[in-house]
């Protein structure tokens, strides 16, 4: 299931760059680390024969969404240290304990012996196979797909409404 070489290299890289996302002082370095995490995950996707999902991960996630984040960092001019005060030690320790407990709980839940996965054909994970699963008559995913398109429209309108300056700020700009 996936090449061990790909798994260990890309998996280690993903964990290290994910730590970089949360440890970097500047949001710009966090965003660059996030790009590396998303690209390592795309490598894992492709090694698991999820070719379309890997391509979408690179184009939409590492491309579009990350450009949006970097654009916002630049717009807000947060390139340097953002003057974030460290948490109180007790709060930080409590947060770390919660995360460690969560990780241990998840790994206990996931400790299963999985059989060797079945061999799959060359069609597995291609755009054609996934398109048929999404849009074939009687597909289970048609309604989910349509709901996601409505959600995208709502998010578009919501982002424009939130991003516009409020009435009193508009007055300041006019005077």
């Amino acid at each position: 299931m996936g090449h061990p070489f790909c798994f260990w290299i890309a998996g280690t890289l993903a964990i290290l760059t994910a730590l970089g996302v949360i440890l970097a002082r500047s949001p710009l370095y966090s965003a660059l680390s996030l790009a590396a995490t998303l690209l390592s995950t795309a490598v894992l996707f492709i090694s698991l024969q999820a070719h379309l999902a890997g391509a979408v991960q690179v184009m939409v996630y590492a491309g579009a969404i990350l450009v949006l984040i970097v654009f916002t960092v630049m717009l807000l001019n947060l390139r340097g240290d953002s003057g974030e005060k460290p948490l109180r030690p007790a709060a930080a320790a409590a947060g770390m304990v919660v995360c460690a407990a969560f990780f241990l709980g998840l790994t206990a839940f996931f400790a299963v012996d999985a059989p060797t996965p079945p061999a799959v054909g060359p069609e597995f994970g291609t755009a054609g196979a996934i398109g048929r699963l999404l849009f074939a008559p009687g597909s289970r995913f048609v309604y989910a797909f349509e709901l996601v398109s409505v959600l995208l429209l709502a998010a578009l309108v919501g982002a424009i409404a939130l991003g516009r300056p409020g009435p009193e700020q508009g007055k300041d700009a006019a005077s």
């Binding site: 299931m1 994910a18 730590l19 698991l48 995360c99 990780f103 790994t107």
Partner: peptide
């Protein structure tokens, strides 16, 4: 190299999720 199983990917996923939660 020992083959990679679903459990390996599950542990990696749990690690990434915990880092995000942190």
């Amino acid at each position: 190299m020992t083959p990679v199983t679903l459990a390996h990917y599950a542990y990696l996923s749990a690690g990434l999720f915990s880092v995000g939660l942190a």
